Amino acid sequence: MKQLKTLLIAAVLFVSASQVATAQAKSAHVDVSEIMSKMPAMLEAQKQLEKLSQTYQADYKTMGDEYNAKLKKYAAEVDSVSQKMNEERQKEVADMEKRIGEFGQTAQKELQTKEADLMKPIEDKIKTAIQKVGKAKGYQYVFNSAGLLLADGPDLTVDVKKELGF
């Protein structure tokens, strides 16, 4: 009976020890924002977005300048034209305001869409590289160090950059 108790205690200890060993998964961290900020594809995407943004800003400024010129002209001529002409001009100015507002909203949406289209493949490439490096080094978990309060484990940022070719 004593031997059975000893055997049962040994079995429980063995099972407990194996569970503790498997619970200690290997983890590392990587600084995704650092990788993205230095990745050549990301820098190119930023240039494309900046160029598109500047185009929209120039168009918006042209529309605004045209609007302001008409307002100034119409204000100077308000007393010299008919009431009917002033009403038509007010309608024209209101239409211009509407077009300018719609243009601003459309431009913003198109910039967001373009940004998403450019970022998706970059993010996918980084994720794939992180997974490849993490698996090659035997890590079960790789965390983004941007949200970590304590990053005591290995930093794979340099390895991921090498995997991405920069």
Rank of each mutant, 00 (worst) to 15 (best):
T22V: 14
K26F: 06
S27R: 15
S27K: 15
A28V: 13
A28P: 14
S33W: 09
S33C: 04
E34Q: 14
E34L: 07
M36A: 07
M36D: 04
M39L: 13
M42H: 05
E44I: 11
E44S: 11
Q46H: 14
K47F: 11
L52R: 08
L52C: 04
Q54M: 06
T55S: 12
Y56D: 01
Y56L: 01
Q57V: 01
A58Y: 15
Y60P: 07
K61T: 01
T62Q: 08
M63E: 03
M63P: 09
M63F: 11
G64L: 05
D65I: 03
E66M: 03
E66G: 13
E66Q: 11
N68I: 00
L71R: 07
K72W: 04
K72Y: 06
K73D: 01
K73E: 00
Y74M: 03
A75R: 14
A75S: 12
A76D: 07
E77R: 10
S80G: 11
V81S: 00
S82A: 02
N86Q: 09
E88F: 14
E88M: 03
R89Q: 03
Q90E: 07
K91W: 09
V93I: 08
A94S: 10
D95G: 11
M96R: 05
R99S: 04
R99L: 00
I100K: 15
I100P: 15
I100W: 15
G101P: 08
G101R: 14
G101Y: 14
F103W: 07
Q105C: 07
Q105I: 10
T106D: 00
Q108R: 15
K109Y: 07
E110C: 09
E110K: 15
E110L: 11
L111Y: 08
L111R: 13
E115V: 03
A116R: 09
A116T: 03
D117Q: 10
L118N: 10
L118E: 02
K120W: 01
P121T: 15
E123R: 14
A129S: 08
Q131S: 01
K135I: 02
K135W: 02
A136T: 04
K137V: 01
K137I: 00
G138M: 01
Q140R: 11
Y141T: 05
V142C: 02
F143P: 06
N144E: 00
L148M: 10
L149M: 07
A151P: 12
G153I: 10
G153S: 07
